[in-house]
Amino acid sequence: MSNGETRVPEHQHSHDHSEHGHSHAPTVSAGNERAVLIGLCLTGSFMVAEVIGGYLSGSLALIADAGHMLTDTVALFLAWLGFRLGRRPADIRRSFGYSRLEVLAGLINALSLFALVGWIAYEAVQRFLAPEEVLAGPMFVVAVLGLIVNLVVFRILSGADADHVNIKGALLHVLGDLLGSVGAIAAAVIIWLTGWMPIDPILSLLVSLLILRSAWALLTRTFNILMEGAPDGIDIKELQSDLRSAVPGLADVGHLHVWSLSSGQTMATLDIALAPGADPAVVSREVKARLAQQHDIGHATVEINWSGDGVDCPAATAQHQ
């Protein structure tokens, strides 16, 4: 289909798609891909050092943070892979290209965060039941280095397009790591000053709660895209009402479906009924312009209902409320 293509019937419901062709695959930002790759290298390299430091110091906070850095590494790799494959052009089997890979990667990121929280909670309970000695000195040094690395990665990713699901997911992972590093530093200081070992699992659980909140937000966003739900901020009934009132010559709007292909790619299909004497080409052009300029819907497929019936689609409309 062509971008914002208007379907003109040969008879009553056949459509002409020969106007012009195009690829639905988005332009993948080289800056996003580069930022994710740099973050991947930094995070993956330090993860090994943190695993060693957590093992030698006996700190659950460090081990938990190392586990989170492992999921960071996986998340960043999936994000990089999504951007890499997303540059592939659309083909005859995948006319929308490969951009939805970034949404799948975002879903995996969210699920990995839930798994991490479960593991930390289990380990924390074990530490409460059988406290283990923690070496505050090595723990402090490794935690400070981890904080520095995470700050650098967070700064790099913040300079990329944070609206992308993958960039957002990676930022949430790194933010969780930042909090984990701060918690590990605080635990090391408290252990060094007081010798109170339970602070290590306690701070690990507090960080886990923050990670859980971020994971839920990411999961709901990616799930909504995969379920082709209406994007945030779009109300189907309000959108129909806006088109009816703003577009001259438009009598009615029906069969309106709005969904996201991936981050920043909102699409719509709809039927329109024309007022008597209205020019079909002009009305359809104005509908597409209104959708793009006022509602950020860049790709709209408009079908003109010539019969004058069947415009309303309550069941379809209700799916997007």
Results as ranks from 00 to 15, higher is better:
Glu133Tyr: 04
Leu179Ala: 08
Ala170Pro: 07
Ala30Met: 09
Ile148Val: 12
Pro231Ser: 10
Met1Tyr: 12
Asn224Arg: 14
Val311Gly: 03
Tyr55Ala: 14
Leu116Thr: 03
Ala136Glu: 01
Gly67Pro: 06
Phe114Thr: 08
Tyr122Asp: 07
Asp279Gln: 01
Trp216Thr: 08
Asp163Gln: 15
Asp279Val: 08
Glu286Arg: 12
Arg127Lys: 10
Val189Met: 13
Ala318Tyr: 10
Gln265Gly: 01
Ala289Arg: 15
Ala186Gln: 05
Gln321Glu: 15
Asp279Ile: 09
Val283Lys: 06
Ala66Ser: 14
Ala75Phe: 01
Thr73Phe: 04
Leu37Ala: 15
Ala64Val: 09
Val144Glu: 06
Leu104Glu: 02
Ser158Tyr: 09
Ala121Ile: 05
Leu116Trp: 08
Val311Gln: 10
Leu151Met: 13
Thr71Asp: 00
Met47Gly: 05
Met267Asn: 14
Met69Trp: 07
Asn224Cys: 03
Asp296Cys: 02
Leu70Ala: 11
Leu210Arg: 04
Asp312Tyr: 11
Leu85Trp: 14
Leu291Arg: 09
Val247Glu: 05
Gln321Cys: 06
Leu210Ala: 14
His255Asn: 09
Asp235Thr: 09
Tyr98Arg: 11
Arg87Phe: 06
Gln265Phe: 11
Gly308Lys: 07
Gly159Tyr: 00
Ile92Phe: 10
Trp196Ser: 08
Val28Pro: 00
Phe128Ala: 02
Asp91Tyr: 11
Asn150Ser: 14
Gly176His: 06
Pro138Met: 04
Ala64Leu: 07
Gln293His: 09
Ala289Pro: 02
Leu111Met: 14
Ser59Asp: 03
Ile156Tyr: 02
Thr266Tyr: 11
Gly106Asn: 01
Val117Asp: 06
Val253Leu: 11
Leu171Arg: 14
Leu78Cys: 06
Leu157Gln: 10
Ser45Leu: 11
Gly180Arg: 07
Leu78Ile: 00
Ala90Cys: 07
Asp296Thr: 13
Gly86Cys: 07
Asp296Trp: 12
Trp306Tyr: 15
Tyr122Trp: 10
